[in-house]
Structures are given as structure tokens and as C-alpha cells.
Design a protein around this nucleic acid. Structure first.
Lengths: 339, 339
DNA sequence: TTGAGCTATTGAGACGATTCAAAAGAATCT
DNA sequence: AGATTCTTTTGAATCGTCTCAATAGCTCAA
């Protein structure tokens, strides 16, 4: 069935198109009688406003893009929900795009979003340095970095990953571990590098009493964690670390699975601590200790900054918001029985 | 910075707007020299094609909407990934919308998608009967139902939930359980009703030897499962079921948490089986038995059907595709030690 | 009766791309 | 040179809505 347009509505209601448009956008300036006639016509024809044409004319869109590193990671789903809850109040749509850690996919999503002339973009970039993002912003699409370091050139919302790493590292040290592994992903991902640096700092503070091994997987996924876990399980017991700090909870869950598969007990044989404190962390085979981030708040704040910039681009000053993570201790890093 | 348009490009390259458009859409019909000039101008100006205007003129959009019941449920994330993988090959965007089981939110998302004139909508509806969806389709937006019963009026992709329920029920019966609980959500959700009906059938087949209790939570979430688990844990041991079939894995995880919190052992004191076989099911405190659905395939097939309809609306015949679930047995429903 | 001061309505441009019939140019053949 | 074909390029019309200056209709006062 052909979709109806404003002109057909105008014809049926015997008014001009301008009036129909007024009924749609500023009903209060239209006399009640005509307004009624127009609404009737709309209903009779099943007219639905064409947002595309409206957008073209008005120039502003009512959607924002959210590009995340991994939709399968509940952390990002929570960030997205935070963003959406705010967007909803502003009658705005959030389109969720998954870069899956692939710069190519990320780039394609950004192109598409820019072509759609979205109101703005929230993004957790794959790579820390991204000139493309700056050009995008320079061409007029506001960008807010989410869970990512501030470059100063745009707004950003992040959690102090270095502090998070430090909390995790210090916790393991305090539990008496002397050989700790950092199970991470590509160090080109700033989050990973920072969490690692934090852990390193905590361990360096022991003055050499504790050793830090670093092992990386190609991606921060359950499979990545499992792969590293397999390698660890294959080590002779005396070379094996007694604790692992995983760059996120997905990896920690994979690591945990590998331990179980090889009959290693957590935390007795090896303690684990993850990062993000996703809801599934508490439900894991051994409830996971983790570094919690304010996930929804991250999303909410990001879109707040974006809306602020859109509302008044002239006066807007870019801001870098940083939240603090905190430690959630569960069974996976419970104190070791004395050896 | 003002965004450039085709006219500015044309001016700089000293050709007509028609030629620029040709360079963009059918470069092969433009002479190499002009093509080069136009590309140079595009690069110099940082021109980005306005997809909104293009869409308005051409009439077809390059995005499809996917409305799911719960983004926090990895099942739907996987369905979305399946859909996106196909969409990507067709240079199409999938916008993910979360109805969160709320008909109001669902309705608002549908309105928005229709106003945006998306190419089509994939949806797991909140309610089985939905006249609104039919009107939407009648007005010209193709709709494909996902993981939902076929109404015959549109395409649909589903998994046989009744069979799934039957598999789960039969499995528990076969394991020797005589008092089984179905932990579900609103029966108005067709999936829940069907899974329940399947379990009921399997149990009825025992000729009254097995008893089925039914308990529902307001939503199919971890919290919902936990709430039901709490109630069960509070029952005196001899009234307590010996097994629970949860309407999905999220609930099963919640149920499991409640058991652990009250010191009940799974599967010894109470066996659990979930539904969906999400990745986290295998990583749970007690690895969950579950009824597996072909999640990504569901998404891929749904968008295939949609693209088929869009490609040739005249000749298109609506189809109802149904997949078979299968049982994945893990520790949470391991055989009971003989009492 | 005329004019001023309202409110309600109108309708002619945008907005930025695509399309396509027609014109212009280039190449080939008589 | 002129006719014929083929290749490129042009530019006006179009998609559906919004905006805004202009107009119409009304009331009230002088």
C-alpha cells in the first residue's frame, strides 16, 4: 500500500499543507475545528509522518549512534541501556553498532552514521589514536568517547582503568600471591594497557617480592580467556602463577572454564579476578571477584554530554569525566589456605 | 563546520550536479578525467554523502529495525549478530531496539521505525496478538516475526517451543523426578506458554506418576528466576520439587543463585534445566543443562526472509520457518544419587 | 466606514540527492 | 562536408516536510 503524505491529508481535510504541518508541530496555533478535521483525515488515511523528509528539511536528526567494542559483552549492553534510558526522555533513538574490535567494521559504521547525519556518536574506539574520529568531529558530528581516554579534543567519559588495575593487583598481593598473571588482550586497546599498568604499579610497589607474568589473547572474549587458561594449565605446577587478573569478566569466565576442565581448583590452586563486574560474574561456577565500573552511569553521562553539546555547540566546552572503579571481592579470590 | 553538499562539489570540479551524482552511483559511465576531478573535489571538501536526502529521493532505506524482548538476554544478542552478519553483506544497517517486554516501549519503537521508513522490521513481539503489527505491514513496512508463532499474515522464523518443553520435561521424567516445577514468566508470552505446554505434555504422558507445579515471575530475568528460587527454597523439603524447568537460561541462573544462597545443592537437592543455551549457561556455578536454539541462524533466516520480500514484494509468498531445538545435558540435571 | 490589531491559514521556496530526457561533443562512415 | 552513431554531460523536476512572509478573516474602536 502506498504510504500517504501530508498533501493527501491536506486534500482530504481541505486545508493547505502548511496547516497540516502546523497541526503536527504546533497544534496550539491551529483552531480546534481545523485541528480536528486534520486529525480525522490523518486517521482515515493511516498517515505516518515521514521522518526522513522532516530530517532533511530541519537538518537535525533524532538518533545517536553508539559504537561498542563487543555487543556480546554485557558490559556494553549495560552502557547502552544507560544511554537509551536518557535518550528516551529526549525522544531520541540510540542505534547500537558493534565494531567487534575490528577497525574496518568500526570505520564502516562511522561512515554509515555520518551519512545518516546522526545527531552525534558515542564510541568506544578500537584504537586509542584515531585521526578519523577527529575529522568526523571537525566535519560537524559531535563525538563523545566512552570508556576511553580523553584526547582533549572531544568529550569523554571513562573509568580510571589504571586505578582499577591497581586495586586488583594490590588485592592479589595482599592475599599473599607471589606470582601473578595478567591475562589481557591487545595492548593497543587502551583499557587493557591501563589495567595492566595499574597492576604492574601495584606489584612494583612490593619491591620485587612479587612477579608479574603477562599473557595476551587476540580478543577480550570467553574464548580468549579459555585459551590463556589452557596454556596456564599446561605449565608445570611450580611455574604456574597462583593468581590471574583478567582484563575483563568475559576472559575471566573463559579462564575459569579452562581451570575446571583441567581439574584445577579456584581459588585454591589459582585465584582469579576479573573486570567490569557484569551480572554473570556473580553467577559463575566460582563467583568472580571483579573490578566494578558504573556501567549504566557511563552510558547516561556520555549521552548527557552529547546532548549538552548539541543543544548549544557555541558555548559548549569539551569535558572529560572520570569515574572511580571499585573492588568486589567474591569467592574466586578468597584467601588461600596456608600452603 | 558546515557540511558540504553535492552542489559545492560540482562547483569546485566544474561539472553539473548530475555528473557528481553519477560519479557517486555509476562511476563507470563517467569519463575517467572528470571522475578524477570530482573525486579530488570530494576529498578536498571533505564531502560526505547525505543518506537522508538520498533516501528521500530513492524511497528505499538501507536500515532494518530489530525489536527484541530483552537486550540483556544474550540469546537476543546472538540473534542480532546473526541478522547483522547477513545485513552487512547487503550494505544494510540493523538498528537494535529493546522493548524490554513492555508493550508501550515496543509500540514507541515501532512508531519511530515506521516514521524513519525503515526497509523492514524484525520483531519478537511482546504479545502474541498484535493488530498494530498487521496494520504496520498493511501500510507497507514488511514485518518478520522472530522466535514467535506464525500468524500466516507475515513471515516468521521460530523454534518449536512446544517440542523444546517436551524435551526438557521428558528428560526430567526420565531422570526419575516425580515433582517438577515449571518456572516461567507471563503466559501471555507465547514462548513461555508453549514451553510450558510441552513440559505438561511430557509429564501427562507418564499417566499421573509425575506432578507439575507452575510458578511465574513478572519477567524472564535473572531476578525473576531468583525470586522463584527463593520461594522454592522456603518450602518444607517434602513439598519442594526435585527439579525445575526454567523458561530461559537467565531465570535458570537466578534460580541457581537462590539455591546456592540457601545451601541447596544442584542437582542433588534440586535439578535445573534452562532454555536457550546461552554461552553463560556452560560457565554457571553448576553448568546448566538447557534446550538449545539455533540463535544466529534464527537471526540470519529472519533477515533473509525480509530481504526476499523487499526484493520482490509482488511475487513474495509469506513463509513460516520452524527450527528444531535440542537438548544439551550438563551437570545441573545429572542423575540423582539413588535416594 | 476605515483602520488597526488580532488570529488562522496559505503557498511558495528551501533541504540535498537522484533521474532522465535532451543537448552537446566526439568518433566513424559515406 | 555531412550524416550517423555513440559517449558524456547537463539541468530541471522530484521525493515529503517545514518555514515564513504574506494574506485573509475577524473584532473593536474611532
Amino acid at each position: 500500500m502506498a504510504t500517504r503524505n501530508i498533501k493527501e491529508v491536506a486534500q482530504l481535510a481541505r486545508v493547505s499543507v502548511g496547516t497540516v504541518s502546523n497541526v503536527l508541530n504546533r497544534p496550539e496555533i491551529v483552531s480546534p475545528a481545523t485541528r480536528e478535521r486534520v486529525f480525522d483525515a490523518i486517521k482515515k488515511l493511516g498517515f505516518v509522518r515521514n521522518e526522513v523528509a522532516r530530517h532533511l528539511r530541519v537538518g537535525r536528526s533524532r538518533t545517536v549512534g553508539l559504537v561498542v567494542l563487543d555487543v556480546a559483552n554485557p558490559f556494553f549492553v549495560d552502557v547502552a541501556q544507560g544511554a537509551e534510558s536518557v535518550a528516551e526522555d529526549h525522544d531520541t533513538m540510540v542505534v547500537l553498532c558493534n565494531s567487534a574490535g575490528d577497525p574496518g567494521r568500526e570505520r564502516r559504521h562511522l561512515d554509515q552514521l555520518e551519512q545518516q547525519r546522526v545527531m552525534g556518536i558515542l564510541i568506544t574506539p578500537v584504537e586509542a589514536e584515531n585521526p578519523w574520529l577527529e575529522e568526523l568531529a571537525a566535519r560537524g558530528t559531535p563525538v563523545v568517547l566512552v570508556d576511553s581516554p580523553a584526547t582533549g579534543l572531544q568529550c569523554s567519559v571513562a573509568v580510571d582503568d589504571r586505578l582499577g588495575g591497581q586495586l586488583a593487583g594490590a588485592h592479589l598481593v595482599e592475599r599473599g600471591h607471589r606470582r601473578v598473571m595478567f591475562a589481557g588482550g591487545p595492548m593497543s586497546v587502551k583499557q587493557v594497557a591501563d589495567r595492566h599498568a595499574g597492576a604492574e604499579a601495584a606489584i612494583a610497589a612490593t619491591g620485587g617480592a612479587v612477579e608479574l607474568l603477562t599473557c595476551t589473547a587476540p580478543a577480550l572474549t570467553v574464548a580468549g580467556g579459555r585459551a590463556i587458561g589452557e596454556r596456564v594449565a599446561a605449565l608445570p605446577p611450580d611455574e604456574r602463577p597462583t593468581a590471574a587478573f583478567c582484563a575483563n569478566d568475559m576472559m575471566a569466565l573463559g579462564f575459569l572454564q579452562a581451570m575446571a576442565a583441567h581439574g584445577l581448583r579456584v581459588p585454591e590452586d589459582l585465584a582469579i579476578i576479573g573486570y567490569d563486574d557484569i551480572d554473570f560474574a556473580a553467577a559463575a561456577a566460582v563467583p568472580l571477584s571483579s573490578v566494578r565500573q558504573p556501567r549504566e552511569l557511563l552510558g547516561r553521562t556520555a549521552i548527557d554530554l552529547l546532548l549538552e553539546e548539541v543543544a548549544d555547540p557555541e558555548q559548549h566546552r569539551h569535558r572529560q569525566v572520570i569515574f572511580q572503579p571499585d573492588l568486589v571481592i567474591r569467592e574466586s579470590s578468597a584467601p588461600r589456605r596456608d600452603p
